Simulated assay, not measured.
Amino acid sequence: MSRPFHRPMQPGDAFFDHQESGVDPLALREAADRAATLIVRGARESEDDQVADRLLALARTEGLETLAELWAGASPESLAGCLWRLFALREWVYADPRGAADQFAAGRASAEFARVVAGVADPPGPDELREMVDQVLRGIAERDFADVLVRAAAFARVIATGRASLPVPHEDVVRMLSVAEQLERGAALERRGDLD
């Protein structure tokens, strides 16, 4: 049985006005990837001693919402995705330093190797954790990026271990463990020269 012909809907001028004023997702992704590459590769190649301070200023002044617009949707196996996880870890520690310290303290005995790699002062209080996450971001400019990712991954692994022993929702444990594993994969890719 054939259907009667219907004229296709015409979108009208307002439809195209709305489309043109929006942000092109592909252009945003390309800009985010370029920014991540400039931050990581440019920081290592720069001879400016204040690049590390500027990375911390970026975390303080831009806020997680702005960085999320750039990097939150990036693959965890990309420079942008790794940067997102580093900045998100820092933001979490700064938002809840006491909770972060308690979770780290709860996990350090069971994740001894990761605790040592994370390099948090003992005992791990809120100030020590804030200092460690700032050192991680500074490391983007001062150390090998793979080492930065390994240190952050170790920190996330201790936190996940601590969360598992505390009354924390299971999905929060899994989420932090996933961050640790993603950062570890990022570090392995960086060592092979495959992290873009």
Score class of each variant (00 low, 15 high):
S2A: 07
R3P: 15
M9S: 15
Q10Y: 07
Q10I: 05
D13E: 02
D17I: 00
P25W: 03
P25M: 00
P25N: 09
L26G: 01
A31W: 00
A32C: 01
A35H: 03
L38V: 12
I39G: 04
V40G: 03
R41N: 05
R44A: 13
E47D: 09
V51T: 10
R54F: 14
L56S: 10
L56R: 11
L58Q: 10
L58P: 11
T61G: 14
L64M: 13
T66H: 13
L67N: 11
L67P: 15
L70E: 05
A72V: 14
G73D: 15
A74L: 15
S75P: 09
S75R: 09
P76G: 14
E77L: 15
A80C: 14
L86N: 10
L89G: 15
A95F: 13
G99S: 12
G99V: 06
A101Q: 10
A101I: 06
D102G: 11
Q103A: 13
A105C: 07
R108H: 08
A109G: 03
S110C: 06
A111V: 00
A111C: 04
A111E: 04
D122T: 11
P123I: 01
P124E: 07
E128A: 15
E131V: 05
M132Q: 13
D134H: 02
R143V: 07
F145N: 09
D147M: 01
D147F: 06
R151P: 03
A152Y: 05
A153E: 11
A154P: 08
A154L: 11
R157W: 05
A160N: 07
G162H: 11
R163L: 03
V168E: 09
V168K: 07
P169F: 07
P169G: 08
H170C: 06
S178N: 06
A180S: 09
E181K: 04
Q182T: 00
L183R: 01
A187H: 00
A188Q: 06
A188I: 03
L189H: 01
E190P: 00
R191F: 03
G193H: 00
D194T: 00
D196S: 04
D196N: 08
